[in-house]
Every structure is written in C-alpha cells, then in structure tokens.
Design a protein around this nucleic acid. Sequence first.
DNA 1: AGTCCTAATTACGAAAAATGCAGAATAATA
DNA 2: TATTATTCTGCATTTTTCGTAATTAGGACT
Lengths: 150, 150
Amino acid sequence: MGKLDEMDMEILGFLQENGKRSYTEIAKLLKVSEGTIRTRINRMLKDGVFEFIIHMDPNKIGLNVQVIIGISTKLGQQEQIARTLNQFQEVRFVGAFSGRHDLILQAYFKNNDDLVDFVNKDLAKMDGIISVDVSIELKQYKDCFSYIIE
Amino acid sequence: MGKLDEMDMEILGFLQENGKRSYTEIAKLLKVSEGTIRTRINRMLKDGVFEFIIHMDPNKIGLNVQVIIGISTKLGQQEQIARTLNQFQEVRFVGAFSGRHDLILQAYFKNNDDLVDFVNKDLAKMDGIISVDVSIELKQYKDCFSYIIE
DNA sequence: AGTCCTAATTACGAAAAATGCAGAATAATA
DNA sequence: TATTATTCTGCATTTTTCGTAATTAGGACT
C-alpha cells in the first residue's frame, strides 16, 4: 500500500470540509482531470485511508446520554472484554490505553435508565473487570473530523 | 424543528451503512420517489440532524499517536479552557463531563514529540488547569458511526 | 360531507456527475 | 534509448442530481 502524496492529502483536505464534494469540483480546484481525482479516491478507499460516512447528532436522534467509561481489567482479559464491548450497538468507540484505565469506551444511550442497565447489568456480568469509571457528558464543545493540518 | 419519523430514521439507517448511497437508491429501497428522499435529507441537513463527512484512519495519514486526556479545572475556568482547547487542530473532541475529570478531550498527533509539546507547552501554559491525565491509545477495537438501533 | 389550507409527495426535463475505457503522457528501470 | 508500468486525460454513456410544477394527503373548521 503506497504512501500518500501531496495531492492525496489535498484531496482529503477538501473532502474533510465537505464529504459531498464531487470529483469534478475537486478536479477543478486542483487543476487536474476528473479521472485523476477518481482514481486516487478509489485507491484510498480500497486502502482504507478513509470512508464516506454520515455524522449524526446523537441528541437529534434521541440519544441524549453520552458517556465515556474507563475500565480497569485483570491482566490477560483485556482483549476478550474489548471484543465483548464491541458487540454493543450503544458502544461507539473502544480502545486499549496506557494510563489510568486499561480500556476506554464511548457510548450513547437514549436515557439514564439505559445507561444504568448497561453498567449494572451488562458490564457487571463481564468477567475480568476490576473497576469502572463512568463520566457523563454535560456539554460538548468540539467533535470534528477535520484533522489534516495543512 | 419537527421530530424525525420512521422514514427519516430508515434513511439515516441506510446512510450510516454507506454515506455515498444515492437518493435514487434509497428511494428504491423504501419504495418512494427520489424527490421524497431528497426533501427529507435536505431538511435533516438544514436541521443539523446529520452531515456528510469522511472518516479518515489517523494512522494512514501519519497521525500515529492518539490520546484521550482528562483534565481537572479550577471552578469557573472550565468553559474558557474548553474554548482554548477547541482551537487546536490536533484536538478532535472536547466535552465537559461529570465524574473524575471535568473536561475530556481526544487528540491526534504525528508522534510522541508533538504530544509531549502539547502537554508540556500548550496545556502547561493554560491557566486554571489543576491536573492532566494522559492516556495513550495502544490498540483500537472499535470506532464506528452507526448508532441507530433498529 | 365539503371547503380551505398546508405540507408532503410525485413527475419530468435539464444540468451535472459518475462511470467505463482507450489512448497519451509520464516516470522508473534496465 | 528502449521497455515497462503507472498515472493521467479525453470522451461517450449511464446515472444521479436539481429545479420546479402538478398532484396528493392530511388536518382544521363549518
């Protein structure tokens, strides 16, 4: 999988501003042909460099309780716990981390009851969890997906 | 801003699988006209229900150090600190939380040096920060954007 | 029921974009 | 320089989007 060159990064730069930009428009901006942009975008998609998605506002679709949960796990059980967490639709993000918590996850719930059920039933059932540290989001200041620095 | 009905949620359900689906395709799937899908998508975009974006793999664009940082702030200075954090390109997410940390942020860096600079220079300069708890991502298990549960 | 009003849906032609490929240009290697 | 592989361009075809007008559906009210 070849490395990205300057033009690839510029294409990503335009797309991160607006995922709906057309090949044609980007081609005009970069003064190359439409086919060039198309080839490069398809290659990057194939290589998993990026994907076209939608970003929904959780609150607007009824997911009003957003949390970040730090989990300490018993040695050797981290991976298995992470895989179990993966399977929950409510869980948006799971990662293994160095630092205070072994695993950190982000999850969205309709309401507090659903969160409490998740923590007290689903998490409580899992073997190998030492401790759980729940942080409930009170206010969101930033949630952006444009992290190419030009 | 009206509430979303069943068809809106179905449209979001299709788009969350693939942000490139066409009006035409979704229309066929839901057995309505293309114009209906277009009208509804445009209304949801106007209302901020969702947006079309790309999701880049940080590692594939050279951002190999991903962190979650918890920050404890002095009373009354949280908002101002959050706004300062917003301005950093490296910072992808900032929220105010209940729990152990007042603010939690997610950020991506090219390398450890850039992370260290951010923590020891940028964060250290900010007034009102009591403590900082850096967790470095070792492995990502899940990072998905499909959180409509059907 | 019937009328009025509003919002949602459909229909359709025109413009724009995506797609599939062939051929030209470019770069890389021997 | 010749050769090969890769990238880029140009163009015809198909598909999608877009603008808009006509139609339909659903209330609210008499």
